[in-house]
Amino acid sequence: MKTLSRCKPALGTYVKLHLAQETDDDSLLQLSEAVFAEIERIEAIMSFHRSESELSRVNRDAFRQPVVLSSEMNELLSFCAELYDRSGGTFDVTVGGDMVKRGALPGQNGFAEPRGRWDAVRLEAGRIFFGQPVLLDLGGVAKGYAVDKAMAVLPPDCQAVLNAGGDLKMRPWRHRTVGVREPSGGALHHLDMQAAALATSSAEFHEQGHPVTNPKSGRPLEDARVISVFASSCMVADALTKCAFLQEDTHHLTMMYDAECVCLGSP
C-alpha cells in the first residue's frame, strides 16, 4: 500500500490530503493533483474574494437580469434554498452584505447596496434573479461542497482523508476517530466518526468576530461553543454547523439529513 500526504493553501485555509492505494507513487501523485485541481476549480466558481468568480458575477448582475448558473452553482444554491426553507430562514446565504459592512469580507466596486434577504432571490430552471440587491456569500457551505466534489474524483479503491481547515471527509470512515478542539484553550476532544464527513465551526482563530452571522439581526454571533456535525455529505455537515449555532433545536434538521450534531462548551 502506497501512501501520500500533501498540504496546500486553498479555500482560504490549509487543505490536507492523505491518500493510500495499491498503486505506484506516480499514480498516487497524479490522483492528488486531480483532487487539488478540483478544489481550485470549485474555489474559482464560488469565491467571494475573486472578482471574476461566478459568485461575484451573480452578485453583480442578478439584480439587473437573470443569470444562468453553472451546474455546480445551481446544485449548491438549490441546497441553500432547501435548507433556508427547512431551517425556517435561519440558514441564509445573503449575509454577504452584512459581512462586507463590518469588514469581514472585502467590498467590491460596482455592486448595488445590498438590501434583501433570501426571500428576494428567485432560483428557477438553472437561472437566478434578485428582486432586491443582495450579496450572497457561500463561506458557510462551499468549503464542504468543494471537499465533496474533490473526494468524488478519486477511484473507489483509493483510501483518502481530505481536510479543508476542519471540514473533512474520509473513506473508509468507520471505526475512525477525529480530534476536535475544545472551546478556548484548544485541548483536543476525541470523537468517533459517525459518517463520512465532519465539519466544525467556532469563533476560535477568527479575528473579525464570530464566523456565523445571524440573518435576522445581520450581526455576528457571540457564542463560545464549538459545534461539529457529522453527515454523509460535507456540504450538509458544513451548512448544518451554522444552523446549529442559530437554532436551539436542530433535531428535525439533523433527522432530515441523517446527520449528528455535537456541541462542545456552552454559549
Binding site: 500500500m1 501512501t3 500526504s5 493553501p9 486553498a10 482560504g12 485555509t13 490549509y14 492523505h18 491518500l19 493510500a20 468549503k143 483510501q159 483518502a160 482523508v161 481536510n163 481547515g165 476542519g166 471540514d167 473533512l168 474520509m170 475512525r176 476517530t177 477525529v178 480530534g179 476536535v180 478542539r181 484548544g186 483536543l188 465532519l198 465539519a199 466544525t200 465551526s201 467556532s202 469563533a203 476560535e204 482563530f205 477568527h206 464566523p211 464549538v226 461539529s228
Partner: peptide
C-alpha cells in the same frame, strides 16, 4: 504509517491561511 491509523485528523475552527 497507515492512513488514519496513526495520522490523527483534527477538526476545529477554520484557520485562515
Amino acid at each position: 504509517l497507515r492512513l488514519n491509523k496513526e495520522i490523527r485528523n483534527i477538526s476545529g475552527a477554520t484557520l485562515s491561511c
